[in-house]
Nucleic acid binder design. Structure first.
Lengths: 205, 205
DNA sequence: CCTTACATGTAAACCGTTACATGATTGG
DNA sequence: CCAATCATGTAACGGTTTACATGTAAGG
């Protein structure tokens, strides 16, 4: 079992939906994988070159005037088999790398304005991602094709998790603006429930 | 603004809580950062060596009999400043790399048993992480020190997000065992609700 | 006019993971 | 007796990110 799925394999995966250029593949990554996998041109183009050298994809050159030739890649039978084999051997790991949470862990070392700015930015970012997913969900509902089904899991996952994340961060952000009432007084049930899921009354002062 | 926070900087951060050995630091990473940052010995030890060479940490050698000498690292003033500067310059990014979601995206290419196994494993993994966070939350509540406060945000975040993730995956897993009712009937309001984050009564057995 | 989108690629730097190497003590 | 814990480190490998390099066409 290989722990990781590299860009090369992901390119095969994208091409399993149909032929595409490197540029198209990048677009696909951005639209569909953006909330769980990232790849830039710097990894996609070399990956495609290696795949072509290995006979896993076929290239069709479509000359453009002015623009560089558009190279359209298509999965070969060998490529399809390789991709299925890779899926079979891949462990379903799930990793987060969050500078945001590290910063919040060390929040006591940062000025309050910075904390507020960080939280604002994160809420905005989550909302941006949510908007993207909602557009996809709406499109799927309209299309109603069988092919939309497999994607739905990931979209639903993203909506569920991002919503929870946004709500949590937003509620903590709101606390920063209204700290006067109870700097650390007892009840404040909403915040408590949020922070720990284990209700915990601070024995005030 | 540097996009990323490397292991070197994170070591400074851990040491800002007090002196520790490389071994201790790894433990800290596992216990406290596990759901948003990973680091192994292979990156921690070289990082500490570089930090020492740069004068950002001081080493105190504590000879042990039998065991290799325990090297306890402590932040120097220069180290503390460097860490604060790094925090100031760090963007609060937040990235996910999920082989799990990639596999689910291509679920139509995998046998149903595999899908079931993947979902089961992921639910188990989320529950493992949740148990860890709940232990921390419980410990914090007991300790009740001022130092617990900054950590609380991250623990609360983890609880909120992991709970949502676990619930979503578990509900989808349950559907696999009871798929007969509506293979592809027209409206299917339940499925829509599910895909968009609604917790959902399992249409029992 | 200027920015965005289209379109492909290379090279080097940077980092992290993995595997290797060593070895005593404690608890089941 | 075997596994886990304590404890540190190196070297090779693999992979991604970043910066560089080039150029047209359409739309605001």
């Amino acid at each position: 079992m290989s722990q990781t799925l590299d860009v090369k394999t992901l390119c095969l995966g994208v091409l399993s939906h149909g032929p595409a250029s490197g540029y198209d593949i990048k677009k696909y990554f951005e639209q569909t994988f953006s909330h769980f996998y990232l790849a830039g041109y710097g990894s996609i183009y070399p990956a495609l070159a290696e795949l072509a050298a290995a006979g896993l994809v076929a290239i069709e050159d479509r000359p453009h005037e002015g623009r560089p030739d558009r190279k359209v890649y298509a999965l070969t039978e060998a490529g399809r088999e390789r991709f299925l084999a890779a899926l079979r051997e891949t462990e379903p790991s799930h990793k987060v790398r969050s500078e945001f949470l590290v910063l919040m862990h060390f929040a006591h070392l940062l000025p309050p304005e910075r904390i507020a700015a960080i939280l604002d930015e994160r809420v905005a970012s989550f909302e941006h991602d949510l908007a993207l997913l909602e557009r996809i969900a709406a499109g799927d509902a309209a299309a109603e094709g069988g092919c939309a089904d497999p994607r739905r899991f990931c979209v639903g996952y993203g909506l569920a998790v991002l919503t929870a994340a946004r709500d949590y961060v937003a509620s903590r952000r709101a606390e920063l603006d209204a700290p006067r009432s109870t700097p650390r007084a007892a009840p404040k049930p909403a915040a408590v429930a949020l922070a720990s899921a284990g209700p915990r009354r601070k024995t005030g002062t």
